[in-house]
Design a binder for these strands. Structure first.
Lengths: 99, 99
DNA sequence: TTGAAACATCAATAAATCATGATATCATAA
DNA sequence: TTATGATATCATGATTTATTGATGTTTCAA
């Protein structure tokens, strides 16, 4: 029977599953990719991925709520930037391992 | 505006998002964790995570369909084992970076 | 060839997610 | 103060996903 000696604590597992769930969307992965290269406003990001503003705003909001991104208002614009280092690791991981 | 010079190809992004989506579930993460430590039958895995057989079978089936796991029948039992190396990387990543 | 163990699949409801269009908020310039 | 650009939120319907219990299948031993 599988041993569960050094098992990842349940709490962590659930937290991580939730974070992965947020990342697990093609548009959001693309946004994270862009954000690893700098800070960008919502409009810039929407243009970069060719999607309507409302959709991008919702994706960004979801990632922000999950603690994956940070947002800073500057005048009319809100600039998003990458926060969580694990995000970067996942993206690197994807670059390397994905077919 | 964000540059998309060395952008991850769209096809890869979608494939990866799909794979992450499959991983993004606490029970499935736990199963992958167990499977990184060896091969186990469905019954053994169900006992290890304290869930009904049908549920575990469905989780395993989903991961298998996504190419994350392999399954081998041996007599009455079906043994599952970890296939995708990216899975392992993700789990290591979780061990390290998750709070 | 019957029975039982081990898995897989199915069906159905509930719940979560997605995309979309409309509307609301916020900040600034005129 | 009003108009406008930038962003967020809301409401909706369509599509997935999760969970559960019941039913099928496969394998082997008696």
């Amino acid at each position: 029977m599988p041993g569960n000696l050094e098992a990842i604590p349940q709490e962590n597992l659930e937290h991580c599953a939730a974070a992965l769930k947020v990342l697990a969307h093609p548009v959001r992965l693309r946004l994270v990719e862009q954000l690893l290269a700098g800070r960008w406003s919502v409009t810039q990001l929407a243009a970069a991925v060719s999607k309507p503003q409302a959709e991008i705003s919702q994706h960004l909001g979801k990632m922000r709520a999950a603690g994956l991104l940070k947002a800073e208002r500057e005048g009319k614009e809100v600039y998003y930037g990458c926060l969580d280092p694990a995000c970067a690791t996942i993206i690197q991981c994807i670059r390397k391992h994905c077919p």
